[in-house]
């Protein structure tokens, strides 16, 4: 059971992917956010002891409900599989449900009083939903903790290693942690980013997708 005061990885990624002031999503590679949310859901289930992974496959250890409706829905999908599949395959499956994951995570952050929902219209046609921050305490606390981890030499807590790995995978870490002090710690950040096997798979999936899209682009002369 996740303590009620603790954000899930799905919620943390959704929150950290928002610009503090505008409430819009920060720039990420194509489908980067979708895969990061999918990976975050798997990481939540992993840290709750419902699944385990290795470089070859993802295994469901228990389909007992977690008490979190979002994660329980994802767990149902995983538990219904008839064959063992690698993490990368599950990321593809869950990324297709990322719109639902995103909306559910944003709703949860609004319920928690961290964000507020704001509907705007662009050119009076397209509805744009923004999530300005009401309570920035969570975001500041997470960033401060991760900053100390990147700039220091301490061993990471497993949850922090997971979160940092997910942020690196969807290239949000490069947006959030910018500047010369972070550039000097690029090796440390790369080492920390590898420490979560699911995060590593998210990174591989996004890279592969980027290369595939690049290969499919028409030549511009």
């Amino acid at each position: 059971m996740i303590p009620s005061h603790q954000l899930t990885f799905v919620e943390e990624i959704a929150l950290l992917a928002l610009d503090d002031t505008s409430g819009k999503r920060l720039p990420m590679p194509t489908l980067g956010f979708s895969y990061a949310l999918a990976g975050a859901a798997l990481c939540d289930l992993f840290h709750l002891g419902r699944i385990d992974t290795d470089p070859a496959v993802l295994t469901v250890l228990s389909n007992a409900p977690t008490g979190d409706p979002i994660l329980d829905e994802v767990l149902k999908v995983l538990a219904a599989a008839r064959t063992l599949e690698p993490v990368g395959s599950w990321l593809g499956v869950l990324a297709q449900r990322s719109a639902w994951l995103e909306a559910a995570a944003d709703d949860r952050l609004v319920e928690r009083g961290i964000l507020r929902r704001e509907e705007n219209k662009v050119l009076w046609v397209f509805g744009v939903r923004r999530y300005p921050t009401v309570d920035n305490h969570e975001r500041i606390e997470v960033r401060t903790r991760l900053r100390a981890l990147i700039l220091g030499d301490d061993l990471p807590d497993p949850r922090d290693a997971t979160l940092l790995s997910l942020l690196c995978a969807c290239q949000l870490a490069a947006v959030i942690f910018r500047g010369p002090e972070y550039n000097a710690r690029a090796d440390r950040l790369a080492a920390l980013a590898k420490m979560d096997l699911v995060g590593r798979e998210v990174s591989r999936a996004i890279d592969a997708l980027g290369k595939a899209l690049l290969g499919a682009s028409p030549l511009r002369i």
Partner: peptide
């Protein structure tokens, strides 16, 4: 003979707690 993500997690958290 084998270590999974769950095993790595215990190694890391154990090393962290001891440190």
């Amino acid at each position: 003979t084998y270590v999974s993500s769950a095993g790595l997690r215990v190694f890391l958290s154990g090393a962290k707690k001891l440190k």
